[in-house]
Design a protein around this nucleic acid. Structure first.
Length: 579
RNA sequence: CGGGGUGUAGCUCAGCCUGGCAGAGUGCUUCGUUCGGGACGAAGAGGUCCCCGGUUCAAAUCCGGGCACCCCGACCA
């Protein structure tokens, strides 16, 4: 649990760190500001940071927690190359689907390589060399390794990097039932990892993409500054990424189909205006949205009171790429934005949400300006090529599973567990012979955790106005010793005694021996955030010992030197993060 | 890639509009006084004013182009 047992306490005067009184202007997130102010990281370029000794110690402790929990359930650590031949990515087809995020390079013989953004292909290659029989399954491999992604927008300090450490694990099973168990083991390990590291997370259902796959869950750290929209039911435990979230849609206004008729709607181009103008509800209208799916025009229709979920739409279309049409494309395909409908539409695919198909007598566009149609009915007036749930769940919507309501929250994805299935084992040739001698593809799962992102979240979740408040499990040092009055014989001898006691107990300590004022030292101690602060000073000695203060609590107390180790241990236990 | 913002001392920023000695705070060095919550005095060091080009007697300042960084959206751990 303590990798640095027996090491001498680190002297602040020797530690390669410089705290900053003010954070650089570009840093906005608390974690970003504190990482820079405490000198844990130093920027090199957008999305690239150097870790200082202090920052790297935290990184290593997080890695240790991850390794222990992965090893605990039998996952086996490996190391895979970060440099991959381009052919490996062509073999899976992801050289094109992941195209823009891949960093490309060539060797001296002009052979093309990429820097690995993830390792499904390579681990599949490795596994394929081993797996021959069902007797070789199941197993889970993992590594903690650098990933490279040419992100469109690195951001938030350690939140979104171009080079980062990921703990990525891959399970190989003979069938889906066995995968369920491997998946559950990984899931349980993740719960323990985040709990130990002091990162509160919620597991939410996530989109598994158009590439097949089955269950997929994300471990999300809830924070206003998060980039993901999460929906949580206030009634049952349902939690899902907005991309995936299911909800109960309001019922349609019932009625027998009436004859279609044109109505003049001068200047009306939005659903809200249309409903107000005609004195009807938004759910009595049909909303039209236009997309380009892999370059092909797609007409999308949904009931007017709902929004389109682009992830669900992409999946329904099995499209790799989906973008809303810009004005030029809208014109090019002869669509009238604000007055469009699928009635009489030709030359493009039509995708509809069931709500637009089931509701009778909707008001839809007439495909000419300032005009709409009343009483449009699916089947009679238009027909969708694809009918699929493409509605976006929003804050306040009804839960699909209980009578509760969904609440929208923001969050950052810390980890992802995903039942991949056989996509990669088919592409990369990972197969085995079953009991009957038939060739089968291994069923895979993959499980990722972003280490730096987790570090940032630890700080987001554990800080106050004065600085970081490390959970004992990941603090760079167990104890921060502030020395006041160095040169005084009693202070010097007490410090020496304290240091040897801490060392003997296997506790790591940072000793602020700098020739600075007490105020500077106390403020730095708060900023750096070690769980326990011990002050050695003439005043404390006069009061019978050294002063001990917990970072997460306000008051200090003087205790005899002999009681220090015991108190520090108690504080570590009380931290609530099983070390 | 679209939109917005910023670039001047290690850090935070002023100066730019209205062209004319490159500045403040903080940090750093030295000396002295201090010594329990970012002390005080004195003396110093520190600059490609993001880059390239243009205008001008003269450019941090005006004009053109480029780059970098940050923030918001489409993607991910």
């Amino acid at each position: 649990m303590l990798w640095n047992e027996g090491t001498r306490p680190m002297r602040m005067s020797r530690l390669m760190v410089k705290t900053l009184r003010e954070a650089p202007a570009e840093a906005e997130l608390p974690s970003h500001r504190l990482l820079l102010r405490a000198g844990l990281i130093v920027p090199l370029a957008a999305g690239l940071y150097c870790f200082t000794p202090l920052g790297w110690r935290v990184h290593k402790r997080l890695e240790t927690i991850i390794r222990e929990e992965m090893d605990r359930y039998g996952a086996q650590e490996v190391h895979l190359p970060a440099l991959h031949p381009l052919e490996t990515w062509e073999q899976s087809g992801r050289a094109t689907t992941m195209g823009p995020v891949l960093f490309h390079l060539r060797d001296r013989k002009e052979r093309e390589f990429v820097l690995g953004p993830t390792h499904e292909e390579v681990v599949s290659h490795l596994a394929s060399r081993h797996i021959q029989s069902y007797r070789d399954l199941p197993f889970t491999l993992y590594q903690i390794q650098t990933k490279f992604r040419d992100e469109p927008r690195p951001r938030g300090g350690l939140i979104r990097l171009r080079e980062f450490f990921m703990k990525d694990a891959y399970s190989f099973d003979a069938d889906w039932e066995s995968l369920d168990q491997s998946y559950q083991e990984a899931f349980d390990a993740y719960v323990r990892i985040f709990s130990r590291a002091g990162v509160p997370v919620v597991a939410v259902e996530a989109d598994s993409g158009a590439i097949g796959g089955k269950d997929s869950q994300e471990f999300v750290f809830l924070t206003e500054s998060g980039e993901d929209e999460i929906l949580l039911c206030d009634g049952c435990g349902y939690a899902a990424n907005a991309e995936k979230a299911d909800f109960r849609k309001p019922p349609a206004v019932a009625g027998e189909p009436l004859p279609i008729e044109e109505v003049a709607t001068p200047g009306i181009t939005t659903i809200a205006d249309l409903a107000a103008f005609l004195g009807i509800e938004e759910r009595q209208t049909a909303k039209a949205v236009f997309y380009l799916a892999d370059g092909e025009p797609v007409f999308v229709c949904i009931r007017g009171d709902l929004e389109v979920n682009e992830t669900k739409l992409r999946n329904a279309l099995k499209a790799a790429d989906l973008d809303p049409m810009d004005e030029a494309a809208v014109r090019k395909h002869g669509l009238i934005a604000g007055s469009a409908s699928a009635v009489g539409l030709k030359g493009m695919r039509v995708v509809a949400d069931p709500t637009a198909v089931e509701a009778p007598n909707l008001v839809a566009g007439a495909n000419k300006a300032d005009t709409h149609l009343r009483n449009v009915n699916h089947g009679r007036d238009w027909r969708a090529g694809i009918v699929s749930d493409i509605a976006l769940a929003r804050d306040g919507d009804l839960c699909a599973q209980c009578d509760g309501r969904l609440r929208g929250r923001r969050g950052i994805e810390m980890g992802h567990v995903f039942k991949l299935g056989t996509m990669y084992s088919e592409a990369m040739g990972v197969h085995y012979l079953d009991e009957t001698g038939a060739q089968q593809h291994a069923v895979m799962g993959c499980y990722g955790i972003g280490v730096e992102r987790m570090l940032a979240a630890v700080i987001e979740a554990n800080h106050d106005d004065n600085g970081i408040v490390w959970p004992p499990s990941v603090a760079p040092f167990d104890v921060h010793v502030v020395v006041i009055g160095a040169g005084n014989d009693d202070v010097d001898s007490t410090l020496a005694e304290l240091e040897s006691r801490l060392e003997a107990a296997g506790m790591s300590a940072l000793v602020d021996d700098r020739d600075d004022s007490p105020g500077i030292k106390f403020n730095d101690a708060d900023l750096l955030g070690m769980p326990v602060r011990i002050t050695v000073s003439p005043r404390a000695l006069k009061n019978g010992g050294v002063e001990l203060k917990l970072r997460r609590e306000g008051d200090a107390e003087v205790i005899p030197l002999a009681g220090v180790v015991e108190r520090v241990q108690a504080a570590q236990q009380a931290g609530g993060y099983g070390g």
